[in-house]
Amino acid sequence: MTDAAPILDVRGLWAGYGDSIVVRDLDLSVGAGQTVVMIGPNGHGKTTFLRAVCGLIRPVRGEVWLAGERVDGRNPEAIAGMGLVHVMQGDGLFSDMTVEENLLMGAFPTTSWGARQGALERAYGLFPLLRERRGQRARTLSGGERRLVGLGRALMREARILLIDEPSLGLAPVMIDTVYGAIREIRERLGTTILLVEENFTHIGGVADVVHVVEMGGIVRSGSLEELSNDRTVVETYLGSL
């Protein structure tokens, strides 16, 4: 844990859809430059948690603090404007827009045309594949390419914190390695603060500073990746297997 005030601080968060509450009394904080990973089986509230943090759903109870400002109850565009970047589950690409248009949307809050072009160049520099595909419509891309566009789009503006929802979901193993390579790049080269959600430990080696195990909408264990993956009870009880 860093000494400075955390970038993201969530206190006693309850959230869900309609009458069904999926996130129950969840506390979590992410310090500057940290990569925090939430691990847990499907349907236990990880995606709902991210959606509540970024404002797409209104938390039922609890507080969300972003860089010292309370943001729960604000709308997602306002929270996004404060530097929270969310790579949604399933990419959230605009399917009928080209790769370049998708990337430019990532820089929407940047009003200067020049600055947006600069960000575009930076994203192309980081992921050269995107430059090759720049004129292609998102719907014609493969799953892995889509994921890279999603990550590239997230880099189009200054992120105080980057939320990434299950980057390995539905990808072939080779592509997963590429995607995690990209995440490592973002973390190490840009020093971005990251909150990442995954279903299991398999891919997060070398990325995670802190790991939380989520079950039934709450955090049940926390620790470093090493501690947790060596803890047989955690592995067997919550995750079934590695």
């Binding site: 797409l56 709308n75 996004a80 949604m88 959230g92 605009f94 399917s95 809050p109």
Partner: peptide, 15 residues
Amino acid sequence: RAVAQDLDAARTMGV
């Protein structure tokens, strides 16, 4: 166009 194609995603971009 982004809003027309995916409202939630567009909002998380800050639209």
